[in-house]
Amino acid sequence: MINISRLEKFYRKKKRLGPVNLHVDKGEIFGLLGPNGAGKSTLLSILATVSSPSAGKVIMKGKDITEETKAVRPLIGYVPQDIALWEEMTVKENMLFWGKMVKRKKSEEQLENLCQAVQLHGKWDEKVSRLSGGMKRKLNLAVSLIHDPEILLLDEPTVGIDLQSKFEINELIQKLARDGKTIIYITHDINEITQLCTRIGVLKNGIFLFTGTLAEAGARLQQHGYTAKNETEIIFHLLKQDYSDHEPTF
């Protein structure tokens, strides 16, 4: 579904990402993790066609994202790390406005149901500026789902969302994956990494130290002489390792 090959990104002649090679299949929830400044958001924004790659190729559903940008965009639902909403407008107005930006038009009722699905209840006519931080996150997520995108690119969508809602949203995302959506999910939440993601990639200094399932990660760690009692420790070791001296070993 998503095929990334030798992708690189420079900011003012400084390399921030790459070379990155990655393949994500339909129905996967690919967890993207790594320390702050690793390049996760940079990678996601390139996939979302917000910024353009300095080198390399990205193919989505058989389409090159730089050459067929117009055809790719309707496939993508993008949740940027920063909240992208009009603060002075209500939830309803925001949903309606973003609903105008997409090709597949939705009725007001469908939009309201979408807000329910992300656990944003009873705030339909509330101004966004009056919502709590977590509620804004929920709406931020709902907006990206308006056009039923096949590919979801979610940049820390559940930061600051209460546990109960996060649980429900995770359920929703799993359901979307079962329905055949392809999801790339950036998170710093250990539970989301272990419970939600089907596969993970650890990004550091712009390159992947590891891509694969947690079980694979555990096996590889053992090969390198590390012992991990549980998944949390596996992730801990994955992130702690500094592999910058050599090409990623796994």
């Binding site: 940027p80 920063d82 930006m101 997409v102």
Partner: peptide, 14 residues
């Protein structure tokens, strides 16, 4: 600029 525009770029309208 930093909030709405990135998401607009990713949407169909451009």
């Amino acid at each position: 600029r930093w909030t709405i525009f990135p998401r607009i770029r990713a949407s169909s309208i451009g």
